[in-house]
Structures are given as C-alpha cells and as structure tokens.
Amino acid sequence: MALQDIVEQTVTGLGYELVEIERSAGGLLRITIDLPWDPKREQFVNVEDCEKVTRQLQFALEVEGTEYSRLEVSSPGIDRPLRKEQDFERFAGHEVDVTLKAPMGAAAGGQVAPNRKKFRGTLERADAGGWQIVWSDAPAVKPGQKVSKKREPAPLQALGFTLDELKEARLAPVVDFKGRRPKAVGES
C-alpha cells in the first residue's frame, strides 16, 4: 500500500482531514492534519488530536513496513496551505498569499509588474466560476499614524485564477493581538 493511502486512510478513519504529507532529509515524516470543516463553528486541532493520530499512524506504518526515523503530526498553523477546491470554499473572504506558476506577463495590462507571480489579498469567488484575489497596493498604515480623511484610497485590483494556474496558495499569517484585527479590504 502506498504511503499516501496508508496515511489518508488512517487520518480520515479517525475523523480528521489530511492536509499535507512531507518527507524530509534524515527520515522525518511530517503529517499535517485538520478537523473537517463545519461552517457552524470554527474548530482547531489540539495536542490531544495530534497524539491520537500519531499513535495510530505509528501502528499503521509499522504494519505496512514503511521506513521513517521520526514521525511528526501537527496542525496546519496560521499559514495553512490551500490545495483542494473545498479549501478555497472554506477560506473565501480570508486574506491569502497566492503564488502563480507563471508570471502575469502582458495579461496584466500594465496594472502590475509583468514578472510578478506573488499576490496577497482577499480570496473571493469569481463570476466565471473560478477564484479571484482582491488587493490594494496602498502602503500599510503604521500604528498611531494619522491618515487624512480627504486622501483618496488606492484602487482595488483583482486577479482571477484557476487552481491549475497556482503553484501555491496559503492563508496569510495574520496575528491577532489582544483582539485587534486588521480591517478587511473595503471595511471601514
């Protein structure tokens, strides 16, 4: 049985979602898990979840004779990778970092640098059924900095893409200190 199948079968059998499998030098096998998406409430993987999956995976990998020197099971963290269509649906409206396989080139119409491949903005469903990322190139306001109400806001830009055009997509790591959250694009 292939490693992917063993891990996926074990993780989903315990009621979790497999996010990523990574093999590193030195025999490290890193498994990233998450709880299945429930739109009614936000849930997070905790240490007990990781311990439970680790114990079961150790047994399953030993039975199958899979070679590894160290097993690490963890949550996806604040910069969770987005891979499947359901990941994009789950995190629509969140700030994401997107890296394209190929630069924009002339398709950007001069709006962005033609060799640009990386973008950060809000993930939205596009009208054509694909996805888009919306951002503003306005400089970030520093804490305590006064901003004139007369100043024109920078225009919003949008980039449509399909999952086939992506090299990588991740949640943007936004840290929330003391309940202060950055305002979403278009929020006042």
Rank of each mutant, 00 (worst) to 15 (best):
K183G: 09
S74F: 02
M104R: 02
V134T: 09
Q145C: 09
F59P: 02
G13S: 13
C50R: 07
G26F: 08
R120W: 01
A172G: 13
V53Y: 01
A169C: 11
D34I: 02
E20A: 11
L35Y: 02
L35I: 01
D176I: 15
L57K: 11
L61C: 09
L163S: 02
E85T: 10
R80Q: 05
E89D: 10
Q56I: 09
G105W: 00
Q132K: 07
P143Q: 03
A106Y: 04
L82Q: 03
P173F: 03
P39V: 02
L71R: 08
A60T: 12
P76N: 14
P155S: 09
R70T: 09
K142M: 14
R41C: 08
K40M: 10
P36T: 06
S136L: 06
Q4D: 08
I78F: 08
T12D: 11
S136V: 12
F91S: 09
D97G: 04
L71T: 15
K101E: 13
A172S: 15
D49V: 05
T162N: 11
A107S: 12
L71A: 07
R83F: 09
K178W: 15
K167Y: 06
H94V: 01
F177P: 14
K118W: 05
D127H: 03
G105R: 01
P103I: 06
D38T: 00
L100H: 06
K149S: 14
S74E: 04
G129P: 10
G27E: 12
